[in-house]
């Protein structure tokens, strides 16, 4: 059989490079950009507004009670005449801070418990996971109420309450991840190289699960924000005079019954929009950690 060789292409003008189209990229980009812009706006607002407009958001002006939205008050005023836009921003500031701190507390707790349980295995693992089950078995809100009720109303009890009720899911995610990593040959290689238990956990397991724990923390921010709002709405969280999105909606119950919708709507939007934006960003991050198409360049 004679071997046929394809002709070697002569030096013809270089063809342009062709980039394969990836259809789903467009909508994803829009989603990520919008989410990032919204989160950036919210963060900028809560950081800058108190600096740029040093108005007293608590100042009561009974002459302008319950004004509907107008140029002077884009969000209207509440039942004691406070500007709702300004107060919503202050409320978001408190709620967002509580949400972020509580989420960090929960994620750190979950990371620690999950790592220890997964890496130690055996009796320690069983004991910790029963603890996790116990926490998971009690409804979050109920336990949160129980915890805040033990303290005087304020920001910190809410942080503690939300943190203590939400570390469970992170602990489970982290433990599962650690369990799957624990049997990898690279952990074997580290052990064989003389690494002790502590070094394996701190140098090899913990860094590997950090992205997952970070993602869990971000996803928890909106959740914590809602819990803060719920506790405050019930009158158990942030004290009523302090602006938080929950206390504002609580205070708006009366006007709402009378048909004045704006004191409820705008703080409500301030809860929903950042929640969706943060979830959108977290989704993009998850796709990065957990790539389907991003097989990297396999050489």
């Amino acid at each position: 059989m004679a071997t046929t060789h394809p002709p070697t292409p002569a030096t013809e003008p270089e063809q342009p490079w062709h980039t394969p189209a990836h259809e789903r990229r467009g909508t994803r980009k829009v989603r990520v950009t919008t989410s990032a812009a919204l989160v950036a706006t919210a963060v900028a607002a809560v950081l800058l507004v108190p600096l740029l407009f040093p108005l007293d958001q608590q100042a009561i002006d009974l002459t302008s009670r319950l004004l509907p939205p107008s140029w002077d008050h884009p969000f209207g005023t509440d039942d004691v005449g406070r500007d709702l836009l300004l107060r919503s921003v202050y409320g978001l500031r408190v709620s967002l801070t509580v949400g972020i701190v509580a989420a960090l507390v929960a994620a750190a707790l979950g990371l620690a418990v999950g790592c220890v349980a997964g890496a130690a295995g055996g009796r320690t693992d069983r004991l910790l996971m029963r603890l996790v089950d116990t926490f998971a078995a009690v409804p979050h809100l109920l336990m949160g109420i129980f915890i805040v009720a033990m303290f005087r109303p304020g920001v910190w009890p809410v942080v503690v309450s939300v943190g203590l009720t939400h570390w469970v899911s992170t602990a489970r995610i982290v433990r599962a991840e650690v369990l799957s990593l624990r049997t990898r040959p690279y952990i074997d290689a580290a052990i064989s190289g003389g690494a002790g238990r502590r070094r394996v956990v701190l140098r090899h397991l913990m860094p590997a699960v950090l992205p997952q724990a970070g993602l869990a923390a971000v996803l928890m921010v909106p959740h914590a924000l809602w819990h803060e709002s719920a506790l405050s709405f019930l009158g158990l969280g942030i004290p009523a005079h302090q602006a938080s999105l929950g206390t504002m909606i609580n205070a708006a119950r009366g006007p709402l019954a009378a048909g004045d919708w704006w004191p409820t709507l705008f703080p409500g939007l301030f809860i929903i929009i950042p929640t969706l934006a943060i979830a959108g960003l977290a989704g993009a991050w998850r796709e990065r950690i957990n790539p389907r198409r991003r097989s990297e360049l396999v050489l």
Binding site: Q15, P16, W17, H22, R293, R294, S295, L297, V298, L299
Partner: peptide
């Protein structure tokens, strides 16, 4: 040998290249 481009060639023929790939020819 590994890393000579064999698997990338397979990927190109099956349309399974990662998003940062460009082709010619």
């Amino acid at each position: 040998e590994s890393g000579c481009g064999k698997s990338v060639l397979t990927g190109a023929l099956l349309g399974l290249l990662p998003a940062n790939a460009q082709t010619r020819g």
